[in-house]
Design a protein around this nucleic acid. Structure first.
Lengths: 229, 229
DNA sequence: GCCAAGTGTGTCACTCGGTGTCAATGTGTG
DNA sequence: CACACATTGACACCGAGTGACACACTTGGC
């Protein structure tokens, strides 16, 4: 970037190639299956070389998973933006509900991709790995939100240190369960409704925040759990 | 196997090669990292050819993940063996506690492997994929245990249909969190204690079984949740 | 002892995912 | 026009994984 004016130009060209590549990839992969399509084919359809494909995507899985990757970024931002007064169950429910709702709204495009991911082992594995990353992100966001500052150096193994990770994990279990139900069906199921149902099950544990935490919205912050210091 | 008498013979030879292979693999991989070791090297150390390696393991990841794979089988069996009177939180806690305790007992061998898996993206991904499989297994086992028979044909998206998957998922979130904490530390942490702490957080939701389920052991199964049918 | 049949293994050749390198091209700046 | 910089294609290369074939080795029957 030698000058400010070529940023928009080169940037747009880059974006255009990326779109072309994802378009070709999703088309071919959804149609013929993940293993039956080579990277060379995808690149050829997009009009570029194999080498260029790998300059845009880290792996063959990446093209597909990236398509849903924005979800993760959106989630962390969404959680950070939720009012501090909300109990964890509500804040986390909205956090996962946003990308899920996006899926439901663009079912025509999202459903085939989600289905492809869910039933292709290699893609499912990469997707779960990404979810684990989201879990860590949500975990620190949640800890900060609740005033449970994780001391970076000494990571205490106390229950209070376990809660954020567990809560974030639970939220993502719900996320995954909804996605699975939705992709198993014919797309007519409502992700929002499924999300509400799932969080109705999880809410009890989500709002039982350990330690000295104040959760204004919750009627009673039972400091129940705290054994095995 | 042309005769019954060669089953023990050939079988033992097979087992011996498999052991040799895993031994060599774990040794090399834990020492030099996953990407820095080729399958040819592993096979050479074990005294066989690359081709033979792939006759025993489906992939390079498989050698490592298989080492912890028995966990999954053990879990389903353990859950099935728990007394029916136990509330889900207790039954599931024991279910995941068994393999976790096994890790703690054989820390010398298990810790390096767990560490390798947890911090190698490719291995972590495959491990999570396997956990997803366990989740499905535990889910059906749990449904059977609670009398929530999943009609195979028509998979209803009702809350009652969501619960088993969520509960199993929560148990595995705890499992994963404990494993992560344990592998991050120096191995002196007690998996059993961590497991108890984790389930103390999750218990409230785990025992809130929706619908007409009877959980004898639980003093109070708040059937709070059940909105948005 | 010899000869099937079956199984495990090594070798070779090959495909495909993924990476490093370099030369060519294009684009914006002085 | 000359210069720097970014992007690309072409090529070579490595490693994972697979298919095919030939060569052992074991086992059982004659």
């Amino acid at each position: 970037m030698s000058s400010p004016s070529d940023i928009p130009m080169a940037q747009r060209k880059r974006q255009l190639v990326a779109n072309e590549l994802t378009e070709a990839a999703l088309q071919l992969l959804a149609q013929r299956g993940f293993d039956a399509v080579t990277v060379d084919e995808i690149a050829a359809v997009a009009g570029v070389s194999k080498r260029t494909f790998f300059r845009y995507f880290a792996s063959k899985e990446d093209v597909v998973v990236r398509f849903l990757a924005d979800m993760g970024n959106g989630m962390r931002a969404e959680l950070a933006a939720r009012p501090a007064a909300e109990p964890p169950s509500v804040a986390l429910r909205h956090t996962v509900a946003v990308p899920l709702a996006a899926c439901g709204d663009h079912a025509e495009r999202a459903l085939p991709v989600v289905r492809l991911i869910m039933r292709t082992p290699a893609l499912r594995a990469r997707f779960l790995e990404r979810q684990a990353q989201w879990r860590d992100d949500l975990s620190v966001e949640l800890a900060a939100r609740l005033g449970l500052e994780a001391r970076d150096g000494a990571e205490a193994a106390a229950p209070a240190g376990l809660y954020p990770g567990l809560a974030a994990g639970m939220a993502l279990v719900a996320f995954d369960a909804v996605l699975q139900q939705w992709s198993d069906g014919d797309g007519t199921a409502d992700p929002a409704g499924l999300t509400d149902s799932a969080f109705a099950v999880l809410a009890a544990s989500l709002d039982a925040v350990p330690e000295r935490v104040v959760v204004p919205g919750a009627a009673d912050q039972g400091r129940a759990a705290n054994r095995t210091a």
